[in-house]
Simulated scan of single mutants.
Amino acid sequence: MSWLDDITPPGIKKMFRQQDDKSDALWTKCPSCEQMTYGKDLEAEEMVCPSCGFHHPLPAGARLNSLLGEKWERIELPHTADDPLKFRDTKPYVARLKDYRKRTGERDALLVGRGRIGERAAVVAVQNFRFMGGSMGTAIGEGLLAAADAAVEARAALIVVTASGGARMQEGILSLMQMPRSTIAVQKLREAGLPYIVVLTNPTTGGVTASYAMLGDIHLAEPGALIGFAGPRVIEQTIREKLPEDFQKSEYLREKGMVDRVTDRRQMTAELGAILSVLMAPEAVIEAANDDEGEASVEDEAVAELPEAAE
C-alpha cells in the first residue's frame, strides 16, 4: 500500500479494481501495462486489455457465452460427497465449500454447456478458477465423465477450457484418482471417433496438466498463460539454475511443441469453428472427395482455410 492509498477517499477507491478484484468497480487496472480500462469496454473485449492484449481472467459463464453464444444449454453435473475425508485445516472443508458456493453461485469448479460452435455441435467444459483455484476434486472427475457422455450421445466434440492450480488437497488421494478417471472420459471420445480439444488458460498447473489438460487431439492456449506441472520457482530451487524469462508460458511451449497454437481469446471461437469443420467433416462428403482423383480432399481445403496462429 502506497502513501496515496492512505489519502484516497474510500468512495474513489471503489471506482477502481485490480486484476484479481471481483468487485463491481467501474475501472480496471491492467497488471501488465498499468492502463486503466472502463469496465464495460473491457467486457466488450472479452476481458482482454485493449492497450497491450493482456488476458484478464474470464468468468466461466462468460466463457461459455463467448464460445457457444447466448443460447447454450447447461448440463447438470452429478453431485458428489462434500467432505469424504472429514478434512480440516484452518477451518473445515465443508465450510470452505459453503463459502465458495456463496461467492460463485456454483456447486463446484466445473461448468458444462452444450451448443454449437460454427456449424458443429460441441460440449464445452470450463474450469472456474474463482472456485478454490479451479482445483480438481471428485466433482470435476464426475463432471468430465458426464461431459464426455453428453458429447458421445450428441455426436459432438468435447472442448475443455482449463484453469487450475492442480489437485484439491482437501480430498487427498480421492483427488489424485481423478487423473486416471479423466483419462477414461477422454478414451470414451476416442472410441466414438469424436474430437477432444483443450484450451489452456492462465494458469494450468499440477495434476490437471499431468492428466486431461495434455491429452487433447489439439491444444490451444491463450497468450501469456502459465502452463506446467510444478511452478518455475520450485523448479529453480530444485535444479539451482535460472530459468528463461518466458519459461512455461504458452508462447514458450508453442516453440517446444507442447502447444499447437497460441490464440487470442477474441479469435478463439473462430479458430475452434475452423478446426471442428475439419475434424467433423461429414464422412460421406470426405469419402466422395477422396474418390475424386487429382482433386484436393475436403480436409485439405478446410486446413488451408484455418486462420493463422497468433504468435
Rank of each mutant, 00 (worst) to 15 (best):
M1Y: 12
S2G: 07
D5R: 10
D6F: 07
I7T: 07
T8P: 05
P10G: 01
I12Q: 14
K13N: 11
F16V: 07
R17Q: 02
K22V: 06
P31I: 03
Q35T: 09
M36Y: 15
K40A: 13
E45R: 13
E46P: 07
M47V: 10
P50Y: 14
S51E: 11
S51T: 13
C52L: 13
F54M: 08
L58R: 07
A60L: 00
A60I: 01
A62L: 06
A62N: 06
N65H: 04
E70P: 06
W72F: 03
H79W: 03
A81N: 10
F87N: 09
K91D: 14
L97C: 03
K98Q: 13
Y100E: 08
R103A: 15
A109G: 07
A109T: 02
A109K: 07
V112Q: 10
R114Y: 01
G118Q: 09
A121R: 10
A122C: 01
V124W: 00
F129D: 10
G133V: 05
S135K: 09
I140V: 12
E142D: 04
G143D: 07
A148E: 00
A150G: 00
V152E: 04
E153K: 01
R155C: 09
A157E: 00
L158E: 03
V160K: 01
V160T: 04
V161I: 11
G166K: 00
A167P: 13
E171D: 04
L174D: 07
L174E: 12
L176A: 03
M177L: 08
Q178R: 07
I184V: 14
K188P: 04
R190D: 15
A192G: 14
A192C: 08
Y196R: 06
T201Q: 00
N202M: 05
N202C: 12
T204L: 14
V208T: 06
T209M: 05
A210N: 13
Y212R: 00
Y212C: 09
A213T: 01
M214N: 12
M214A: 15
L220G: 15
E222H: 15
G224Q: 05
A225Y: 15
F229I: 05
A230Y: 10
G231T: 05
G231S: 06
V234T: 13
V234P: 08
Q237T: 09
L243M: 00
E245I: 09
F247Y: 15
F247Q: 01
Q248M: 13
K249T: 15
Y252M: 11
Y252P: 12
E255Q: 12
K256R: 09
M268E: 04
E271I: 04
A274G: 12
L276Y: 14
A281Q: 02
P282M: 02
A284H: 15
A289W: 11
N290D: 07
N290H: 05
E293W: 11
E293P: 12
E293R: 06
V298I: 06
E299S: 10
E301H: 10
A302H: 04
L306I: 11
P307H: 06
E308L: 06
